[in-house]
């Protein structure tokens, strides 16, 4: 992997994405230290305050307060925890499930491949949002169940893309050569095929993180995600949606938070794809 380090670190997209993701990650990790207020502390005297730079703003609440007088900035910072946890574990889980099946299907081919591929086809014919909502109803609310629902819905994305890549790599002569000198299937996959598909896998994971943030926001918007005590961006949007005419700012900030998180992950993924994918870089060099 060492030879990949210089080119991808030089990409502007990757750096932009990394900076955004790092800021959100720091907010999530050190939320108690960074947040100016307790995110759940209500101040019923000062409800629906606008941000500090608008007339009527209060210096104690930089981004204003919501209908219960809770500090928006603090809630945004705490909300990053849910977003990052879901982004990290859901994409990792979806990757593990999807890629293991993709390696099996792409490498062995034949009957096992058609079984896995048909399963993916059937799975993908369910509308993803509806499927995750049904799952949440069945599983009940909670962070762990949100992650589980995203994994169960999104593993197909990894499986389908990766499978075709594995099939291409598995047909290369060096894979046949590895089998000829006595490599077991397990060793052939881990030593010859996985390294060749790693760039694609990394790219897919970073894109999936952005998708996971959106799905979590949707689920918490409809109240199907974490409990009401835990601040989440989607929940904040839902909470303030009735007061859109009284205080549009409250709605704007959580939307921007979701937007930047997804933008960061997508920039990172797109930058990685451009620099790690041999096919793209090869055509650019010509």
């Amino acid at each position: 992997m060492m030879q990949f380090l210089p080119p991808w670190m030089r990409s502007g997209r990757v750096i932009t994405g990394l900076v955004i993701v790092a800021i959100i990650a720091i907010c999530a990790l050190f939320a108690p230290q960074i947040a100016p207020q307790d995110p759940n502390e209500q101040d019923l005297v000062a409800t629906l305050l606008p941000p500090v730079w608008v007339s009527g703003g209060d210096a104690a609440h930089i981004l204003g307060t919501d209908s219960l007088g809770r500090d928006i900035l603090s809630r945004l910072i705490y909300g990053a925890r849910v977003a990052m946890l879901v982004a990290f574990f859901a994409s990792l889980g979806a990757m593990l499930l999807g890629s293991v099946l993709a390696y099996i299907a792409g490498y062995f081919g034949g009957r096992i491949d058609s079984i896995i591929s048909r399963a993916v086809d059937v799975w993908m014919s369910f509308p993803p949002v509806v499927l995750s909502l049904i799952l949440m109803v069945g599983l009940g609310v909670g962070l762990r169940n949100v992650i589980l629902a995203i994994i169960v819905v999104d593993w197909t994305r990894f499986c389908r893309v990766l499978r075709s890549e594995v099939m291409v790599v598995a047909r290369r002569d060096y894979v046949a050569a590895a089998r000829l000198v006595g490599f077991s299937h397990w060793r052939t996959i881990t030593r010859e095929i996985v390294p060749a598909t790693l760039p694609l896998l990394i790219t897919l994971v970073s894109l999936e993180m952005g998708i996971a943030v959106i799905v979590e926001a949707i689920l918490s918007f409809v109240g199907m995600s974490v409990s009401a005590q835990t601040p989440a961006w989607g929940q904040m949007i839902a909470d303030t949606r009735q007061f859109i005419y009284d205080n549009p700012w409250n709605l704007l900030f959580p939307i921007l938070a979701v937007f930047f998180a997804v933008f960061g992950f997508n920039m990172l993924g797109d930058g990685l794809r451009r620099t790690l994918d041999v096919r793209v870089t090869a055509t650019q060099r010509v």
Partner: peptide, 29 residues
């Protein structure tokens, strides 16, 4: 029986060093 492949480009894993490629049989065991 061992085989020498037609296309040296596709027959050598670009991520392995030459020493690692020619002694792959040792790695296998």
């Amino acid at each position: 029986v061992q085989m020498v492949f037609q296309d040296p480009q596709s027959a050598l894993n670009p991520r392995r060093k030459v020493a690692s490629i020619v002694t792959q049989a040792m790695e296998a065991v």
